[in-house]
């Protein structure tokens, strides 16, 4: 699956299907600091992300 990490403004490829939580753990991202989108729709961290999904990890931290 293609994974866009907003905070780092970069896209990576993840080879296998997994849950959102598993993906965040692999990327060492705290689930409290992000929202997950699958194919432009908000999903929960426990939802399955299939191999062909387009995923975005949105940072909830902004400002200054």
């Amino acid at each position: 699956m293609k994974v866009f990490i907003e905070k780092e403004n970069k896209e990576i490829e993840h080879p296998t299907a997994c849950t959102g939580l598993e993906l965040l753990q692999k990327l060492n991202i705290n689930p409290n600091t992000v929202l997950l989108m699958k194919n432009d729709e908000i999903v929960l961290a426990e939802d399955l992300l299939p191999e062909d999904a387009i995923v975005a990890i949105l940072s909830v931290v902004s400002g200054g």
């Binding site: 907003e6 905070k7 409290n32 600091t33 929202l35 989108m37 908000i42 949105l58 940072s59 909830v60 931290v61 902004s62 400002g63 200054g64």
Partner: peptide, 27 residues
């Protein structure tokens, strides 16, 4: 929470720039 606030903006489809302030890392 910050997370609820961003979810609200995404679901309401507000066009928002979500970049951090470039000076935040100094704080």
């Amino acid at each position: 929470t910050e997370r609820e606030t961003r979810l609200f903006c995404v679901l309401r489809k507000f066009e928002v720039n979500f970049n951090e302030c470039p000076n935040i890392h100094l704080s």
